[in-house]
Amino acid sequence: MYHKTGCEGFQCEDQTLGADLAGVRDEQTVVDRLVAWLRQRSLFVLAYGTGCGAIEIRPLMTSRYDAERFGIIGAATPRQADVLVISGYLAIKTLKRVIRSYEQMQEPKYVIALGSCTINGGMYWDSYNTVKQVDHYLPVDLFVNGCMPRPEALIEGFVALQKRIADGEKGGWLRYRENLDWYKANQRRVLGANMLPDDTSAWLQVGGQA
């Protein structure tokens, strides 16, 4: 006979989300924790309206879902933003612009990818000019699946990201910095001769200050 003992499937989300951070939490000093707490409390979002997901950002930011109560607010430029929201499929042309925007953001920075299209191509799985897995070109911190995810799902994604930041996650930007060659090689493979100049990423290669 079936006995339910622990969590199952999506019920385990909280545990799996926090599992890899168990060691990190103990290494944090008080100042680290304070800074991490402040960072998660104040996320400036650069909502990159690449695809249909952009339509979900409006209700999220305005009266109905009011993301501002979580400290999430839109940023005017990439320089001021903390979170890049890639909302939907990325055409190869757009990928170049997204990478350029991402590299201009100041660290620490996070990427939330929205919708099935960013995970496996979604309904554009056989398209010749869209990117199938965004994670190969930019370090995605959190995927919110769905086609399209509702604003509630997006808020849940933001809250999960906030929890991870508060728990001391360093974020994908560190992964991007450490594996820059791999990311750049992937980007070069799809962009080809259209590859973006390295003036926004050069400081990463010479080991710029964080």
Partner: peptide
């Protein structure tokens, strides 16, 4: 919120 925002910006990098 404004205090959080302000202190967060002080803890960010300035690379350009």
């Amino acid at each position: 919120q404004n205090l959080y925002d302000n202190l967060k910006f002080f803890s960010k990098s300035e690379t350009l």
